[in-house]
Design a protein around this nucleic acid. Structure first.
Length: 420
RNA sequence: GGGGGAGUGUCCCGAGCGGCAAAGGGGGCGGACUGUAAAUCCGCUGGCUAUGCCUUCGUAGGUUCGAGUCCUACCUCCCCCA
């Protein structure tokens, strides 16, 4: 992106040097606004899942920096827009979610924001409105006359979110077609209610954001600004946030803190520097030093990345415990009692549990069939000994220090602990 | 409204003379090599109380010893004409 001079405001300076900036509707104008200390910016999050995942982390970090540089962040919960579904960047329509699901998802997502932002009533305290507040009560004809007349269908058809679907002959329902109108309306409404003048988002949100700025101009509100972050992919091109086990959730109930730490520990070499800048708050000089490490030395940088990123989400103590668990497990080959664990009733263990069943229970494999296959491939271990007999039974005799260590491959470990 | 085409292994794409648990990719998982990396090579990639049983090819029926494959109706989508 064009960037002749270094931004004068702390906010944009940080975003620029840490790699958050992709596009901006008016960099100079926004810079002046941020410099004045009156900047209120928002990012919208739909409640399509019970928790946010790593893919949203870059957005959350932008809000965090906004607050840290003296501005006011608004985390908009899309309780209303989730009922419509954003077609941006998606090949197919999403399944419609029920009201109950949306409400439950919303509750889960709200908890995550509390870890990154300071909420309250102060000038730079974060707030978390829900667009259902103003979208649910909209009346169709009124909305069309007051807002709809400002939208040009000609223009909407040229938006990537719409155009890509049409070009590929993929269905785009009228419901989804309206999404950008609602998002645009959100922007203007947030300006009215909370003085928001900036909307941020991933690069796939550019069209929706611009539409909002446009609507603001046509309706005579103050100048609005848009800013997007680059679409994040790993160095080898995969989308961030998905692994075979599923998404990398930010909620510890869905992904253990240890597994979260491991996710960052296992990033590709080529991503380390970029991720340190985006997902930690270490000084840039320190990051430059870490990024310069090569070969096996870069593992030190990965550990720091893992601990710093985990600390931001789950706290310093939990991050250090995850680091220690990993150190004992990988570097000493010792049994770390703090590995993720699954409980089994003591009487079941006394009677003997089939090894296949045990691995399924531990969640390491999806079925006994898969367990059998992994055994053939030498992928399962019990207490670090490769399991070669699918009829093996686990009993209390297998307990070491009160638990049984089950492993899939070299990296995934779960402790089976007797209870009761 | 008329004509033509398509829906395949619940991750995706895609072959499939009536004997099919169904070719081939991609992705993913495991093994080897490494540094808990990348690249490369190899194996696996429906379920189960497992030398057998059960469930899968848009839905519901039918023909057949046997149907993803043939017939009928229906659903969904795409293209052309009006």
């Amino acid at each position: 992106m064009p960037q002749a001079v270094r931004p004068k405001s702390d906010f944009l300076a940080v975003l620029a040097e840490r790699g958050f900036l992709h596009q901006c509707s008016d960099l100079a104008g926004l810079d002046a606004k941020a410099k004045s200390g009156e900047l209120v910016g928002y990012i919208g999050f739909d409640c399509t899942a019970p928790s946010l995942h790593v893919g949203s982390l870059i957005q959350i970090m932008m809000l965090r920096w906004l607050q840290k540089t003296g501005c006011k962040p608004v985390a908009l919960i899309g309780g209303g827009t989730t009922r419509v579904g954003d077609p941006s960047g998606k090949d197919e329509s999403r399944k419609l979610l029920s009201e109950e699901t949306i409400a439950a998802n919303k509750a889960g997502i709200q908890q995550t924001f509390a870890k990154f932002l300071r909420f309250g009533a102060g000038k730079t305290d974060a707030i978390m409105p829900d667009n259902a507040e103003w979208l649910s009560g909209l009346r169709y004809i009124d909305f069309l006359r007051e807002v709809g007349r400002h939208f040009s269908v000609n223009r909407m058809l040229t938006m990537d979110s719409v155009k890509l679907r049409l070009d590929r002959d993929q269905e785009l329902s009228f419901l989804e077609f309206n999404y950008m109108c609602l998002q645009a309306y959100d922007f203007v409404e947030l300006h009215k209610r909370h003085g928001v003048v900036l909307q941020m988002g991933g690069s796939d949100q550019w069209g929706n954001i611009i539409t909002g700025i446009d609507l603001g101009r046509r309706r005579g509100t103050a100048q609005l600004y848009g800013l997007t972050s680059p679409l994040l992919a790993t160095a080898s091109g995969a989308k961030m946030g998905k692994t075979a086990q599923g998404a990398v959730w930010l909620d510890a109930k869905l992904l253990s803190i240890y597994d979260y730490w491991q996710y960052w520990r296992n990033v590709e070499d080529a991503d380390v520097g970029r991720f340190l800048k985006l997902f930690t708050e270490l000084p840039l000089a320190e990051i430059a030093r870490l990024d310069a490490l090569r070969d096996s030395e870069i593992n030190e940088a990965k550990k720091i990345l893992a601990s710093e990123a985990t600390a931001l989400l789950h706290g310093r103590a939990a991050a250090e415990q995850a680091a220690e668990t990993a150190r004992r497990t990988f570097e000493e080959g010792a049994l770390a009692e703090t590995l993720p664990s699954v409980n089994v009733p003591r009487h079941e263990l006394a009677a003997g549990i089939g090894a296949l069943t045990a691995f399924v229970r531990a969640g390491l494999v999806g079925s006994t069939g898969e367990a059998r296959r992994q055994i053939k491939g030498g992928g399962l271990k019990v207490n670090d000994a490769t399991l070669d007999n699918e009829r093996a039974t686990l009993t209390e005799a297998n307990l070491i220090e009160g638990c049984i260590k089950l492993s899939l491959g070299k990296k995934r470990h779960v402790l089976l602990k007797p209870e009761g």
